[in-house]
Write a protein that binds this DNA or RNA. Structure first.
Lengths: 119, 119
DNA sequence: TGCAATACCTAACGCTGCCATGTATAGTGC
DNA sequence: GCACTATACATGGCAGCGTTAGGTATTGCA
């Protein structure tokens, strides 16, 4: 499924924060985790993810450290901070407010017509 | 509630399309309808709405016509097109895909701790 | 006359994802 | 040794969008 860029922009920060809230991770693994969590419906480019991670670090929502995996490759691990957790909760509040509004309008518009009981 | 600009951008098109799917409307009334539908949690500026309406018109998702209300003021009424309804359904699919992904990550993170049954 | 509400429109600015590109290492096949 | 793919991170230019601020015009009220 193609997700338009505005939706990507709106969801990228809360998704990354939520993934980091599960456990610390690094860029390449986050890309795979998003694909996995969405059931393959979301495909992120690394060109959008790394700026997100750098922003999180700049804002103090995450902390980064370099590490060398057993594979020998260097990875930049990100860990969520307490400020990041607060930000995640705030993002979640906002998302749910908008989602509730959308459901409120969609509800009457997308009623199942074929339910059988309907007038 | 302050909604960040990315969320505004992601939700503005589906919200406007859904409002127009209810019945044709005009800019100023849409601003009030959004505030009403969100229970006052969302406040749109007209500076972001009018470009949205023009874009919908340009893309053939809505059609506009000028009218003069009994009040004497001129209004630009927008009506959703069949292409607009298809677009609304598509926007809804995308939103729900992202919402499902977010709920999938949030679920374990925001479990009510006091539930008692939890493992 | 002055002010608020109604009603529409636009321009400059900054932010953000997209896309292409670059760098570097490890593993695989030959 | 060589080519190729996957892993892993980073950046720069482009286009789209909301924000902020400003503009025009009418109606209703004091």
């Amino acid at each position: 499924m193609e997700i338009n860029k505005d939706l990507i922009a709106a969801s990228s920060t809360p998704i990354v924060l939520a993934i980091l809230a599960e456990e610390e991770s690094y860029g390449y693994a986050i890309l795979q985790r998003v694909r996995e969590l969405s059931g393959g419906r979301m495909e992120w480019t690394d060109g959008m993810l790394y700026p997100v991670l750098h922003r999180l670090e700049r804002l103090g929502h995450a902390e980064a450290r370099w590490e060398v995996a057993e594979s020998g490759r260097r990875r930049k691990y990100y860990r969520i901070t307490s400020r990041g957790r607060a930000q995640l909760a705030e993002e979640r509040r906002q998302w749910q407010a908008v989602d509730a509004t959308l459901r409120g309008i969609w509800g009457p518009l997308f009623l199942p017509v074929s339910a059988g009981q309907g007038a």
